[in-house]
Write a protein that binds this DNA or RNA. Sequence first.
DNA 1: TCAGCTCACACTTTTGAATAGC
DNA 2: AGCTATTCAAAAGTGTGAGCTG
Length: 776
Amino acid sequence: MLSVEMYPSLTLGPQRIGECFYRDRQAPAQMPLFPPAACDVAAKALPPRMLVPPPAPNDPSTKTPKDEVKMELENASLWKQFTSVGTEMIITKKGRRMFPGLRLKLSGLNPSLRYILLLDIIPLDNSRYRFQSGGWQAVGGAEARLPDRVFIHPDSPATGAHWQSRTISFHHAKLTNNTLDSQGHIILHSLHRYQPRIHVIEARDVLRWGGGQHSFVFPETQFLTVTAYQNNKITELKINSNPFAKGFREDGMNSKKQRDARQKRKISDVIETLDIVNCDPCDSTELLQQPVTTGTDLQALTLASLPPLPNPSCGFRPEGACYQDTLVPEQPLDLGQAFMASQMSDIGISMAGGMQGMPGSEVANMIERSDTMGEPAYTSTFPAVQANSSFPSAPLPQSSFSSLPIPDSSDTSNPQPIDYPSILSSSSTTTPLLQQTSFTFPTPPPSNSCSPQTLLSSSSPSANTYHTIPETINPHTPADTSFPAPPSTCQSGLQDQISAHSLLAQPNQPLQGEPIARGNNSPSDQSSAAFIYPNSLPANPDPAPVTAQSLPNYNHPPAPSLPCSLPAHGAPTSFAFPSVPPHMQNLSFSNVSPGSAHHALHFQNMSHQAQAPSLAAAFPPSSFTHPSSSLPHPHPPFQPSSCFAVSSSFQQSVSSASSMAPTAYPQNMPNPSTSSYPPVEIGGIPQFNPTAHYRPEMVLHHPSLLPQLDPSLPSNLPSSTPPPALYSAFPSYPLRLCQDPHSSLSIPFRHLYRQHQHGHAHPQGSYLDMSTRAVF
DNA sequence: TCAGCTCACACTTTTGAATAGC
DNA sequence: AGCTATTCAAAAGTGTGAGCTG
């Protein structure tokens, strides 16, 4: 049985972006655990001027429901089961659905307004993985990022009432490894880690987007793409959970037994044909035995390895003695069933007790069903599930909301999710000041991922127990009493009841709608937590060491060698992300602590492929541990079932704030002023610069694309045209609207593509055509 | 040689058209 | 004629394993 130590992150309730901080008391520093803007690609996709202006302060009428948008992952428990093993997603040339799928519940929308739901999938890190020795290891750098595609929920746009009245499923989204895919599937690289994101965008009308947007990320939905399952446990889970794979279950017609039997029959038929004179076609048993003695060597060899064919005429069950005695030794207990059963016992679903004798598949189904029945089904007991998690056991990063009434971990009686907005609103309200905060997240050198590090150890003593990498734990690290350790019990329910919030209002303005509660320390801390995360950026796991260093609860030994300095808690901190839009390059977060020193993070060994603290950094990979050859610590803890959300309002605030703060550039990053980043052209098409990576944000903000959204919009950029930006880690692509000829929607689009702006320079030049044709 | 990928296969569920009944 | 329920076949979604590829 694992304890909180092994999966401490489970103990935290849903956290807002602003809460996702690593904090080290001894070395007061804080950095966002999960960059809010990381999931705000949609927000970035919208030109700032198309965004609804932030409501005026102190105007109750301006508080819109969007400020309270919440999203839950209905089948979070199922996802967590996969995550505990190390979720693998098959990708095929023709496209493969995700399983588990994304089943979501939305609330807090304005019933009368229309919204568009988007799904995109971003890399979690910059590594390629290989399944070795029962675990996933990073074996090299990631392949060049492919054009990002965004899947628009077929119901989009639909009213808030529509979205809130049903479970939202993205099961139609398909994943492919075909870089030339023309079906509109999401293109991913095999053997890479990814994180799905969901974006809720308010659509004022079909063609004109406006209003705010919210982005949600469920850490447990991260996965590793494969073309064939590597981990048998995943296969078992899939078979037991996916109805389409029912045939592969133990009792299915496509089970190994049945397949062997079929193969045997086929061989028997061949033998019968070849040796029909000596065989009684009605006695398959004889047929099976004869070949060994009378058939060819090949036949004998083949049949010798097969179980005797059950006699179809005698009603003899293959599962009976016939197979048991002859088949290759099988595990007495279906691993999948055992796993599921064990999970169930831990999950604590009310009906779990009655499921002891159920087949794994049924258990899985019940779990699936229970997912849709409400959070309480598993929330309070989910930690147990995580006991089997292969996630690193690193303690959860402490929330900067130290003063927040974090639910007692031991209190499992209340599975209800914490209403953070309420909590926060009840606390002191400090207008988030985002200035003077500077964090620089350059990209780690590719070499970082070249040192294999076992991500998932299948050699755990228990088949269902996955221990974390020992070196990630430092038992001697003193606990930070000011930041209570995560509750021993996962408020998974809480965590799954993710809340999207409008984190920030305009700088220097009171928060609109939902005031952000402040911890005693630094109210703005939380807000600062909601820093802009470079969209479309491959997550960079390498900040992990930094976070680890800053997180006492991680129990990580200090990394003195790490050439970085973390801003003291409450100290002014700025986050500079080379790949974020220029106007977001500098996130300035005013800290409550007056006079605190200004600190900037520097990763000297980072490459030019600047990457912001990634999702990987935000949540420790389930069974995937990013290797950090040069970095002593694994990923920061991951917040299972927590949803990180960011709203456009924050972006705006950040954007505004950034304008007030000096821009911080990575040391090894080119000066934006001299960067080859293409200048924004007003009313024109961006110049194609084959040597420069286009930043999607820039392209997206480019007016040349706006006519597609709203022809009436002026073609000139807003006065706040962002300055030139640094190269992004990967080439990114502008959003494009493509009409789906097959869609029954009245809306003339279904999929969004962040299209490669300079596809000619991209290996996948075919994407160039996507600008002129709808690709579905 | 081998890791990774592709494809055909058998099975299952889903979907939608056709039909029957009220 | 219109609606609902049922049936059926095709389509689509599964994992498997052999074969191919670089």
